[in-house]
Design a protein around this nucleic acid. Structure first.
Lengths: 345, 345
DNA sequence: TTGAAAGCGGTACCAG
DNA sequence: CTGGTACCGCTTTCAA
């Protein structure tokens, strides 16, 4: 493993000059620079970024903290982050927390030890404990797909309230009046906002919200399944269900199928997120599409921006991306339809 | 950001002693050690792993090179890698190549610059060019889900030949004789082995392989769709299709559905991989399950083992995991069946 | 334009 | 047991 020292020795110059030449920084006589570059090539020189980081104080590494990369939603967001990072010379350390505070804490610790330049949280718990620790350590962070109140931190989210409202309004336009919802955790902002969207849509159309039609899920498929069974057992059964995410909507589809009922004829179902599966199941799932890849991209872009304006203590901003209702079979009567011709609003 | 130097100064000891105490290495008087630990705590000391790595020559970082983390198959393997890495104190740098040699090369370069302790390749191109570069740089690597010939490198794969053979034999047992296959790229070992499995199963049962029943795909859904349409246009149409992976099998299902034919009544379909979608589509897809998570786990475990036996120039080994045929609706006549009761072989 | 040298934060060997 | 100190490989003033 050759070093700049070897290059310097071979050419009888100083390491300072070699460093300048290699980094194209400061003054170096043109031909000398070319010699240095040539020698570096010849020696198979590869810069040691550890040494560089230690000296410069910058690692060009970002920690990406996510509940589970095997979850397709997060995987797509992560992909957006990674592409943007790659284009800007950043490397990503991946951290799966499984929603566990302990793992999250540990990963934050690791991020600090490794001197990462910044951290991106995606849909994580984000306990304020270590969030403050990070602010104190002056490590820039961006939170994606999760709005955390009272924090001077950059965030990128989608307009959950509007998305949910669009979804429910769509059901109402189809003539549904008895619309139930399976909510996400009400201690998360996404869960709260999507529920408010549901409520607002119902109220604007003067539709009654029966308490037993409001079910609490945890964003996992199983809870969608369980709560839907409960809904089906009701004497006053709803004709449509708005699930706060696709996984729960999928669970709903299963429960309805098992009950020998038809979607959407007997019950319509709408989800949220538009994970890849949504377009694959039968009936295809109507859902609110979050710009997942873009969410990741924007988060990373924001972080890079923050990093290059480091000392500027500019106020944090929240970027809101627009969701898009994707209408498919699970909320239409009848046959298979062309998805493209139906997309909109 | 406090350093060991500050701890040392505050206690009037040397940095050497502090280092020893913090790392629980070498001799330090018990009470002194406790004081050091307490002071570290008090100062909010966080070790700088860059400095540590630079001095020790170990980073505890691994590069994970994968075509696309948003692909659920790779995501699951990656998850296996990450969990194992986490348990052993390793961090993972994620690298999406999109199957592009240029990106793969770039990431290998980055891995070297960052002085990673090792590299795990999953289903990648793995050009011999930089593979040799890595061997020369003495960076241990493990290749998962991809067998590369003539290389003294550790590998973890599943028995593709056997898996394919099992799948086709299953179709034959169901009475199929006209069985087509959509192959994977024949410049990949997985593609070759799965094709050989198909051939062996057919030959052992004295079944004819018509050349027009052997189609070439690229592991993407679209190619499965296209090749299936070709198969359906044949005058001598096959009664079953073995696709070399699930994505292509999914494409096949779509093509068959569009042709208004029934799966499995008119045509049976079997895939390979058992991605999450396989159990979700209708009809549910019969497939060969690869132990994805375990594949990742084993790869990482192998790498860790190799790292702790660094100087021992032990011969590389190839670990072969067993695939498992998962029988679902796409290869059975008739109604929805309980998946569990059908798993076997 | 170039070079000397002081770090960056730790590790680890050697002497005491 | 503990301290002194020479690096690890590169960046970055500051002089020359």
């Amino acid at each position: 493993m050759s070093t700049i020292y070897e290059i310097a020795k071979k050419l009888g110059v100083s390491t300072a000059t070699v460093s300048r030449a290699l980094n194209n920084k400061g003054y170096v006589r043109r031909e000398l620079k070319e010699q240095i570059l040539a020698t570096a090539e010849e020696l198979g020189y590869v810069p040691n970024s550890l040494a560089r980081s230690l000296a410069s104080g910058l690692t060009k590494v970002i920690s990406l903290i996510v509940p589970d990369i095997a979850n397709s939603f997060f995987a797509l967001v992560a992909r957006g982050v990674e592409d943007m990072a790659y284009n800007h010379g950043y490397s990503l350390i991946i951290c799966n927390t499984d929603g566990l505070k302990a793992k999250e804490r540990k990963y934050v610790r690791i991020a600090r030890e490794r001197q990462v330049d910044g951290i991106i949280f995606i849909g994580s718990i984000v306990s304020k404990d270590y969030l403050e620790e990070l602010v104190q350590a002056r490590i820039p962070i961006v939170i994606a797909d999760r709005y955390v109140d009272g924090l001077n931190v950059d965030m990128v989210v989608n307009d959950n309230l509007k998305g949910a409202k669009d979804a429910v309004s769509h059901l109402i336009r189809l003539g549904h009046q008895a619309i139930a919802t399976i909510r996400g955790p009400q201690n998360t902002q996404t869960g709260i906002d999507r529920y408010i969207g549901y409520v607002e849509a119902m109220e604007e159309h003067f539709l009654q919200i029966r308490p037993e039609w409001v079910r609490d899920g945890d964003y996992k498929e199983r809870s969608g399944y369980i709560e839907t069974r409960r809904l089906l057992d009701l004497e006053e059964r709803p004709t449509a269900i708005f699930a706060a995410n696709d996984l729960m909507a999928l669970g709903a589809l299963t429960a309805i199928e098992e009950a020998n009922l038809q979607v959407p004829q007997d019950i319509a179902v709408v989800g949220y997120d538009d994970i890849p599966l949504a377009a694959k199941v039968r009936p295809r799932l109507t859902t609110v599409a979050q710009p997942k890849y873009e969410l990741g991209q924007q988060a990373m872009e924001r972080l890079i921006w923050r990093l290059s304006n480091g000392d500027v203590e500019k106020r944090a901003e929240t970027m809101v991306l627009q969701p898009r209702l994707v209408i498919r079979e699970s909320s239409l009567a009848g046959s298979i339809v062309n998805e493209e011709s139906l997309q909109g609003r």
